[in-house]
């Protein structure tokens, strides 16, 4: 029972983290029609910035805030200097150019921080276990991730659905030329949206950093998960990304935790321990395959809005 609740929360936490990443990706794609592989690099930069700034300032929250600002800035610089020139080009061009950016970022990190990973230590007040149910404790930091990510998701929803900027963003997504013709500074809007996506990726990276080590290439595997989420949820749909992210986070975490035991009931011990790791890492891709067969456009396509 304890394990089930714990793994359930872990799945939720991982899913929410994935959502932060996928939301930025899907926003940028939905509005600028840009496929940004370097999104994972921004996630990585967020984590590296956080590790550096926290070590500098000696204060976790201050360091995290600085790292968030730095990733936002980096995103804006990236958009203005390079990615802006890719709008309206072929998707293949986007893939290649941003692939080049990933190489660049990985190498730059190696040059600046060295090939070894960094650790981001948590302050004492975040490491205490918190009782959530009678007799069940859960690490405060993971709980904090859940709360922060949910808050951000709510803010994002309100921001996109209820504010003027959000209205422009939605309008931009459905008709680029029209909104430009109506006198909206579309360039600025794009830069803003890209910066927002970068900050979300950075937030995910810096929150994940204390749990895993901060290392080169950390953004790549999780980026592919974000792709899977977007495919499942439907491109350009934030709501789809949210639901799919939670779904994928849960399935991945619970699959890894419980599949080996389940398999052991069916198969012999040796066969189960061979098949389990391979099968549990396949699980979400199988899920994606099923979604593709049933609904190729994703579960919650954006154009139904």
């Amino acid at each position: 029972m304890l394990l089930v609740v714990e793994q359930f929360l872990n799945g939720l936490q991982f899913g929410l983290l994935l959502f932060l990443l996928a939301a930025g990706l899907t926003l940028v794609f939905g509005i600028m029609d840009l496929v940004n592989l370097a999104h994972g690099s921004l996630y990585m930069m967020g984590a590296y910035f956080a590790a550096t700034f926290v070590a500098w300032t000696g204060n976790f929250l201050l360091g995290a805030a600085l790292a968030l600002g730095a990733t936002l800035l980096l995103g804006i610089v990236l958009e203005v200097s390079a990615l802006r020139h890719l709008y309206g080009r072929d998707h293949l061009d986007h893939v290649l150019a941003t692939f080049g950016l990933i190489l660049f970022f990985n190498e730059a990190v190696r040059l600046i921080w060295g090939p070894a990973g960094l650790a981001l230590p948590l302050p004492a007040w975040l490491t205490v276990p918190v009782p959530i149910l009678p007799g069940i404790h859960y690490p405060a930091y993971r709980l904090a991730i859940i709360v922060v990510a949910l808050l951000v998701a709510l803010l994002l929803y309100l921001g996109v659905m209820r504010t003027r900027i959000g209205m422009l963003i939605r309008a931009g997504a459905s008709n680029r030329e029209m909104i430009g013709a109506l006198g909206i500074n579309i360039k600025l809007l794009y830069t803003l949206v890209f910066g927002l996506g970068a900050a979300l990726a950075g937030l995910a990276g810096l929150m994940q950093a204390p749990i895993l080590t901060v290392q080169i290439g950390m953004g790549e595997n999780i980026l592919i998960l974000a792709f899977v989420i977007i495919v499942i949820g439907g491109i350009g749909s934030i709501r789809g990304a949210f639901l799919a992210a939670i779904f994928v986070g849960m399935i991945d975490t619970l699959g890894r935790a419980f599949l080996p035991n389940l398999l052991r009931q069916v198969l012999s011990g040796a066969a189960a321990s061979t098949a389990a790791p391979a099968l549990s890492s396949m699980l979400i891709y199988l899920l994606m395959a099923i979604v593709l067969v049933v609904r190729p456009e994703g579960l919650f396509p954006a154009n139904r809005r």
Binding site: F29, V35, H91, L92, V95, N221, I224, F227, V228, I230, V231, I235, S273, T274, P277, A278, L279, S281, M282, Y285, M288, A289, L292, V293, P296
Partner: peptide, 30 residues
């Protein structure tokens, strides 16, 4: 499976399936 989609979806899906193959190979302890 992948040809049920097109464009960016196709790029992402072929990528994801290849990554699945990568993880499966990583899991082949034998």
């Amino acid at each position: 499976l992948s040809l049920r989609t097109r464009g960016v979806y196709f790029i992402m899906i072929t990528l994801a399936f290849a990554q699945m193959a990568y993880y499966v190979a990583s899991g082949l302890a034998r």
